[in-house]
Amino acid sequence: MHELSLASDIIDTVKQTLSHEELPSLRKIVLEIGAYSGVVPDSLSFSFEAITAGTELAGAELEIINIPFRLKCNQCKTEAEPEYPIMLCENCGSSDTVVISGDELKFKEFKISESEE
């Protein structure tokens, strides 16, 4: 359900950014989605497709760039991509760490083309 409201937010932003004439030419909406953003990319694409069907955005699809969870240790300076978002350094066990990436949920670009290539 969360993905459905996000898909609707995405369409709002598209409509604010592009002119009415440009909407049918929108082919791809490129998004960056982090591994612990809480968003399921497949569900988001499904929701987007479902609510754009039969509208001026029917020719557009989501292109999702998955961003891994990355952590940097302030103590031993190790950078790692842990499988789970655990904030402890895999190398020295310190909790003095910073998240470098993994929380993203953002637009990157729109791809527009007259032809449906």
Partner: peptide, 15 residues
């Protein structure tokens, strides 16, 4: 294909 850069959070409106 024309590319329009849009660096913005999806939840920008909520934020």
């Amino acid at each position: 294909m024309e590319i329009i850069k849009i660096e913005r959070k999806v939840l920008a409106k909520n934020d």
